[in-house]
Amino acid sequence: MKDNSIIENAKKTILAESNAIANLANLIDNHFKNAVECIYNSKGRVIVTGIGKSANIATKIVATFNSTGTPAVFMHAADAIHGDLGNVLEDDVVICISKSGNTPEIKVLVPLIKNYGNKIIAITGNIDSFLGKNANFTLNTFVEKEACPNNLAPTTSTTAQLVMGDALAVCLLELKGFSSKDFAKYHPGGSLGKRLYLRVSDLTKNNKLPQVSENDTITKVIIEISEKRLGVTAVLKGEKIVGIITDGDIRRMLSKTTKIDDFVAKDIMGKSPKTIHKDAMAIEALDALENNSITQILVIDDEDNYAGVVHLHDLIKEGIF
Rank of each mutant, 00 (worst) to 15 (best):
residue 114 K to R: 14
residue 114 K to P: 02
residue 115 N to E: 13
residue 115 N to W: 00
residue 116 Y to L: 12
residue 118 N to Y: 11
residue 119 K to C: 01
residue 120 I to G: 03
residue 122 A to L: 11
residue 124 T to Q: 10
residue 125 G to D: 05
residue 126 N to I: 09
residue 128 D to P: 01
residue 128 D to A: 07
residue 131 L to H: 09
residue 132 G to N: 06
residue 132 G to H: 04
residue 132 G to A: 10
residue 133 K to P: 05
residue 135 A to D: 10
residue 135 A to P: 08
residue 137 F to K: 00
residue 139 L to N: 13
residue 140 N to F: 05
residue 140 N to A: 09
residue 143 V to G: 03
residue 144 E to W: 01
residue 144 E to G: 03
residue 145 K to R: 14
residue 146 E to A: 11
residue 146 E to H: 13
residue 148 C to F: 10
residue 153 A to C: 07
residue 154 P to W: 05
residue 156 T to Q: 09
residue 156 T to S: 13
residue 157 S to V: 06
residue 157 S to C: 04
residue 158 T to A: 04
residue 162 L to R: 00
residue 162 L to H: 06
residue 163 V to I: 15
residue 163 V to Q: 11
residue 164 M to L: 06
residue 167 A to C: 14
residue 169 A to P: 00
residue 170 V to D: 00
residue 171 C to I: 00
residue 172 L to R: 10
residue 175 L to C: 03
residue 175 L to R: 10
residue 175 L to M: 11
residue 177 G to C: 14
residue 177 G to K: 08
residue 177 G to V: 09
residue 178 F to P: 01
residue 179 S to H: 09
residue 184 A to S: 15
residue 189 G to D: 06
residue 192 L to W: 09
residue 195 R to N: 12
residue 195 R to A: 12
residue 196 L to V: 11
residue 196 L to E: 13
residue 196 L to N: 08
residue 200 V to G: 07
residue 200 V to R: 03
residue 200 V to E: 10
residue 201 S to Y: 05
residue 202 D to I: 04
residue 202 D to P: 13
residue 203 L to G: 08
residue 206 N to E: 15
residue 206 N to W: 09
residue 206 N to D: 15
residue 206 N to A: 14
residue 209 L to G: 00
residue 209 L to K: 13
residue 210 P to Y: 08
residue 210 P to Q: 02
residue 210 P to G: 04
residue 213 S to G: 14
residue 215 N to T: 10
residue 215 N to P: 00
residue 216 D to N: 14
residue 219 T to S: 12
residue 220 K to I: 13
residue 222 I to W: 05
residue 223 I to D: 12
residue 225 I to N: 06
residue 226 S to T: 15
residue 227 E to F: 09
residue 229 R to F: 02
residue 230 L to C: 05
residue 231 G to T: 04
residue 233 T to E: 00
residue 238 G to W: 04
residue 244 I to Q: 07
residue 245 I to N: 06
residue 246 T to G: 03
residue 247 D to T: 03
residue 247 D to C: 02
residue 250 I to N: 03
residue 252 R to K: 13
residue 252 R to L: 08
residue 254 L to R: 14
residue 255 S to L: 10
residue 255 S to A: 15
residue 255 S to H: 02
residue 257 T to K: 00
residue 259 K to S: 15
residue 260 I to D: 01
residue 260 I to N: 05
